[in-house]
Design a binder for these strands. Structure first.
Length: 831
DNA sequence: TAGTTTTAAGTTTTT
DNA sequence: CTTAAAACTA
């Protein structure tokens, strides 16, 4: 320990210190980008514990992302170990924690599973039969928004969210069905706790006594329901401190309400406001460019950031022909800087920092844009890492496995049941499924009346299957029994992990035989099927040994279930056909489960973690965090991060901002630009393309509106300045400033962009005709990656005609001539 | 029915 | 261009 007891306060600037030492009234900290906001929160937590004698367990700090929560916990603990006992959670994880303990007050069992958007849609589609999927999606979205705004089905204001007449009824039905199933969606994690706190004064009092300090990070992203939750948790003696930046509010589309921060002083009367306006991250020119864009917004609280780091390089604006050149530009830029840094440090041999790959981040608006960069980086061998787009848990095979696990925990989970009861196909079709589901609720109605409305067997699909299976045709009956056995075996493992773990391997074989035998006994005609079943089971068992490997803890149970159910084999066969890696993904899920206890509680924890922290897969997949790689990331995902060098790509009208953005939404896009730009510490690059490929078609593009909002004296412009852009040649105003008129049609064609690109753009239509004409020996072609070559041979294969090409370089390669998006074009023929 | 082929539709951003 | 939904056939 160096310095006095207060040394950790000495590193703070006066405003930061004021914020840390503030007590009493509610506090709103308006913290600009890079102003040391996390340092203030973590220091404040430590200070409260250390100097104010606050019990760490009575501190609740809420963030919006798990990453932020983890980082905060880590940093607070560094200042004072006891901070580890404070409750640091995301809003949703806090809600789940609350409901596991108090959900019964809202008729919720503690074993609930959290539904994601996909599950919501599945649930809705059982209510909205024969309705187009788009409408179902829309309804799911509206229900989510309604919950964000704390609107129940009976609320008169519901029409503001969705004005369709049927919406209210569907919301009602959705809520009823969800209640019957006993699960919750994301919105419920916030809305239900508020309802319980309002209905149960005792619970509310308990929580207000428990938490004497509540802090909220990224407060600008709180929605109405979250505000209500904060209100309910706050008693007269609760110290409330929220931190946010209205200029960084970028989640309006999912219900974030900027008014929360704008009106905080009114809603929490007598609140103090402290502004943190010293930016320690970016150099002055970067900050200026970022600010000048967001300055175009109205209705801001407004603040002036000062660049504590002083002057630096001007941001570079690069006008490029198309997205291929954009990827090329980024790759070259990054490669050169890394090479230069290596050479420099080698010669000087100083302790100066090398430029690492990890200094660089490429930002884009939509995840789909990462593809071009990935291809180019792969080709050049530039190490990179894509953040957040993996969607690991949205993959079919993973959803299947999770549905299996969910059904294990909650036999009333109709959504999970429908997903997996007939996967792989067991002869249990939609008709059978519907009858079971109906039977489950009917049976409940009957027994419910008898046993005074108990929740017990209401909707229990396992019970319904057992009861009804004998009534079905042999095929369905056998299928149901197989499925029942799989789930029962899984449950057995959970209930008695020690015993079952030992003979798990045996059980898998036994179950298969039992099911097959029963099938044979029940129906002579099923003999062949029974034999088939046996055979496939044997084959599966053999494959599993080399396929899925179970480790420790819960992974034993997960592996077991995934194997027994046939999901593993099903996807393995798919892999063989399509070359996918689904079995590997399942293996990864199994591995992830090994961290949890092999019990019902462990499984619930595992499922909750997966629903609430989807980034877990990313971390697991990428291994260590301190990888020296370039970061590819969406603008949204960059919040809270910083990089020495940032390239903001796709700055074209229609891409960023998106074409349909107006007014409020356009302002949100501006804030998104601001968030992205303020991630950069030393260097900022902006790229805008004259052409962009979308849906496989190349279209002309205009520079982003935002680029005009930066004074050109504050930028270093490279490349051909488009017509009409300040500094470029004069021409008619851009399409979006002219009224009406089809943007794109009225545009003057390929009037800019290099010659090379024109030929490239033309290639699409030409090669279509060429492909129809087919290929023959002697055709000459040009390949994007390998240059000029000639066709030596054309052959047929399963996937279509294959051409063998000899290139000028002497390289010989084979291609599918009819492959979509082929990278080569015919340029002539040798006669 | 299950598994295939054909056709149409569509890309924000995320807890 | 990629994906999902509808339509079709064995």
């Amino acid at each position: 320990m160096t310095g006095g007891a207060d040394s950790y306060l000495e590193v703070l600037n006066p405003e930061q210190r004021r914020a840390v030492l503030h007590t009493g009234k509610p506090l709103l900290i308006l913290a600009g980008a890079g102003s040391g906001k996390t340092r203030v929160i973590t220091t404040k937590i430590a200070w409260l514990i250390r100097e104010q004698g606050v019990d760490p367990r009575s501190i609740l700090a809420v963030t919006f992302t798990n990453k932020a929560a983890r980082e905060m916990a880590e940093r607070a603990r560094l200042i004072d170990e006891r901070a580890g006992d404070a409750m640091l959670r995301t809003f949703h994880s806090f809600g789940a924690w609350f409901l596991r303990r108090n959900g019964s007050l809202a008729g919720l069992d503690s074993g609930f599973v959290i539904y994601d958007d996909d599950d919501m849609i599945s649930l809705l589609s059982t209510i909205m039969e024969d309705v187009p999927k788009a409408e179902i999606k829309q309804t799911a979205h509206s229900i989510s928004r309604a919950k964000d705004y704390f609107l129940s089905p009976d609320d008169p204001e519901l029409a503001v969210i969705d004005s369709r007449k049927k919406f209210r009824d569907r919301y009602v039905q959705y809520e009823e069905k969800m209640a019957r199933i006993g699960n919750v969606d994301f919105g419920d994690l916030i809305k239900k706790p508020v309802e319980i706190l309002r209905k149960e004064p005792n619970v509310a009092r308990r929580f207000r006594e428990r938490f004497s300090v509540i802090m909220v990070d990224e407060y600008q992203d709180a929605n109405v329901a979250q505000f209500e939750l904060l209100k309910e948790l706050t008693g007269p003696d609760t110290y409330v401190c929220v931190v946010g930046d209205d200029d960084q509010s970028i989640y309006r589309f999912r219900g974030a309400e900027v008014k929360n921060i704008l009106e905080f002083p009114n809603r929490f009367s007598g609140a103090d406001i402290i502004r943190l306006e010293r930016n320690y991250r970016s150099t002055a020119p970067i900050l200026k460019a970022a600010s000048s864009v967001v300055d175009h917004n109205h209705g801001r609280l407004g603040k002036t950031l000062s660049a504590e780091r002083g002057n630096g390089k001007l941001p570079v604006l690069a006008f490029l022909p198309d997205q291929d050149e954009e990827a090329n530009f980024c790759a070259t830029l990054i490669e050169n800087s890394v090479k230069a840094a290596k050479a420099g440090s080698g010669a000087v041999n100083s302790g100066a920092k090398n430029t690492n790959w990890s200094d660089w981040a490429i930002l884009y608006r939509t995840n789909a844009q990462s593809l071009g960069f990935e291809t180019e980086f792969l080709r050049r061998g530039i190490p990179y890492q894509v953040v957040g787009s993996l969607k690991f848990y949205e993959r079919e095979e993973i959803k299947d496995a999770l549905a299996l696990l969910s059904f294990l925990v909650n036999p009333r989970d109709e959504v999970a049941f429908r997903r997996i009861v007939n996967k792989p196909t067991r002869g249990v079709g939609p008709v059978t499924v519907d009858r079971i589901v109906e039977g489950a609720s009917d049976g409940a109605a009957g027994s419910g009346a008898a046993s005074s409305g108990a929740v017990n067997s209401d909707g229990d699909l396992m019970e319904a299957m057992r009861r009804m299976a004998p009534d079905f045709a042999p095929k369905a009956r056998a299928g149901l029994q197989t499925f029942l056995k799989v789930i029962e075996a899984g449950r057995a493992v959970l209930e008695d992990p020690a015993a079952s773990a030992d003979n798990a391997a045996d059980n898998a074989g036994d179950d298969g035989k039992v099911a097959a035998n029963e099938l044979a006994l029940d129906d002579g005609a099923a003999d062949t099927r029974a034999a088939d079943g046996k055979k496939s089971r044997k084959r599966r068992a053999a494959k599993e040994q080399e396929g899925l490997v179970s480790g420790e803890g819960l992974s034993v149970c997960v592996a077991r279930l995934v194997k027994d159910s046939g999901i593993a084999e099903y996807h393995q066969l798919q892999d063989e056909l399509t070359g996918n890696q689904r079995l590997n993904n399942l293996q990864e899920l199994v591995n992830a489960a090994s961290l949890y206890k092999p019990s019902r509680e462990g499984l619930l924890e595992f499922l909750e973690h997966i629903e609430l922290d989807r980034s877990m897969a990313d971390n697991a997949a990428s291994g260590n965090k301190d990888n020296n790689t370039v970061t590819l990331i969406t603008f949204h995902n960059t919040k809270g991060l910083e990089f020495r060098r940032v390239i903001m790509t796709g700055l074209e009208h229609g891409v960023f901002p998106r074409e349909d953005k107006r007014d409020e939404e356009l302002e949100e896009e501006r804030r998104l630009f601001y968030v992205g730009a303020t991630r950069a510490m030393d260097e900022l690059y902006l790229s805008s393309c004259a052409m962009r490929r979308m849906y496989g078609k190349t279209m002309p593009a205009e520079p982003s509106l935002f680029l005009r909002e930066i004074d050109k004296s504050g930028l270093r412009i490279i490349g051909d300045i488009p017509y009409g852009f300040p500094g470029g040649a004069a021409r008619q105003p851009p399409a979006w400033e002219r009224d009406g008129g089809g943007y794109g049609n009225s545009y003057g064609g390929n009037s800019y962009g290099g010659n090379r690109k024109q030929s490239n753009a033309g290639r699409g239509s030409d090669s279509d005709a060429e492909r129809k004409a087919g290929w023959r020996r002697g055709d000459r072609l040009f390949h994007d990656d390998y240059g000029y070559g000639a066709v030596m041979e054309v052959r047929d294969s399963e996937d279509g005609p294959v051409v063998r090409v000899l290139f000028e370089t002497g390289k010989e390669l084979r291609f599918l001539s009819e492959q979509q998006g082929a990278k080569f074009m015919k340029i002539g023929q040798d006669e």
